[in-house]
């Protein structure tokens, strides 16, 4: 298999058996937004707007670089946005404008 074929065939999350570093026993309290993001994932699955398996696929579809560089819930929320665009539920413009609104709201006061 050529290197590019390998890149296509092996999903970025498929790490079982790959060489890896010693385990660092790290953990952190979830940030409030991370917990909301988890709750959002569950609710999206309950309604089958984005089922759990779609979420996993959406994270893999971010590609190897983002899977490595983004944190766990950063991957989730970006994957949700992409899937909602694909499904025609949201548009990129709509989300961008809403993000500006949220940002300006939170910088007031």
């Amino acid at each position: 298999m050529t290197p590019t074929e390998k890149l296509v065939n092996r999903l970025p999350n498929d790490v079982g058996g790959l060489p890896a570093d010693p385990i660092q026993r790290v953990e952190h309290e979830l940030e409030p937004w991370e917990k909301r993001c988890h709750a959002l994932a569950d609710v999206l699955d309950f309604h089958k707007i984005i089922n759990t398996e779609e979420k996993r696929r959406g994270v893999e579809a971010l590609g190897a670089e983002m899977v490595v560089k983004l944190s766990y819930y950063e991957r989730w929320i970006v994957a949700f946005a992409n899937i909602l665009f694909q499904k025609g539920i949201l548009t990129p413009t709509e989300l961008a404008l809403k993000m500006k609104e949220v940002e300006s709201r939170s910088s007031e006061g």
Binding site: N9, G17, R57
Partner: peptide
């Protein structure tokens, strides 16, 4: 087999 896109049987 080697599906692309999404799979749930690990390569190993």
């Amino acid at each position: 087999r080697s599906p692309i896109g999404h799979y749930r049987v690990p390569t190993y």
